[in-house]
């Protein structure tokens, strides 16, 4: 008896593995997503970081005080900006530096050298293990960084980090 050929009108594709993988990836990206911090969203400048050769050392994400030297996109002036990743410590630093009159909701504060000195000193008192990072725009004059390093030195914060971006390997330094 000849076999009856089954005519396929449509076919059903088993989507289960696809959906499994999709959800796996979705979960991964959702859990690893790091949202802009409050301090960053208050920021009115973008920092063009200097490039350095690829390195394995990464910016620590805990107990970090970041001193940014940015060029304001609208006004075009350079200034220091101070922020801390640890919210509780930041609240204590703000409370301790009453004369600076920093509103408690502000996470990133625009400061001059003398205020910076006060803030760094307070930070060192509140939590001596806080690490400092200098995140400066590559276009700013070196004087800004030099002055900042002097302030850090006066406050005995002699180990700190320069935040850099990875230089693409095919692009040698000029």
């Amino acid at each position: 008896m000849p076999k009856l050929k089954k005519r396929r009108l449509g076919f059903v594709l088993d989507m289960t593995p696809l959906v499994d993988i999709t959800f796996l990836l979705l979960t991964f990206f959702m859990l690893t997503a790091k949202f802009k911090s409050e301090a960053e969203s208050q920021q009115r400048f973008t920092i063009v970081r200097p490039q350095a050769t690829a390195d394995t050392s990464r910016l620590p994400d805990k107990d970090l005080a970041i001193i940014k030297i940015g060029i304001d996109t609208i006004a075009g002036d350079t200034s220091y900006y101070y922020e801390m990743t640890n919210e509780a410590d930041w609240a204590r630093v703000v409370a301790a530096t009453e004369q600076l009159q920093i509103p408690p909701t502000v996470r990133q504060v625009k400061v001059g050298l003398s205020e910076l000195d006060e803030l760094i000193r307070r930070t060192r008192i509140v939590k001596p293990t806080t690490r400092f990072a200098i995140d400066a725009d590559q276009r700013v004059r070196y004087k800004w960084v030099e002055d900042l390093m002097e302030v850090l030195r006066q406050n005995r914060a002699t180990v700190f980090n320069f935040v850099t971006d990875r230089r693409p390997p095919e692009q040698p330094p000029m």
Binding site: R58, D135, D165
Partner: peptide
């Protein structure tokens, strides 16, 4: 994530 260059003075 941005990388860092450690500096000691």
């Amino acid at each position: 994530t941005p990388q860092v260059m450690e500096m000691t003075i």
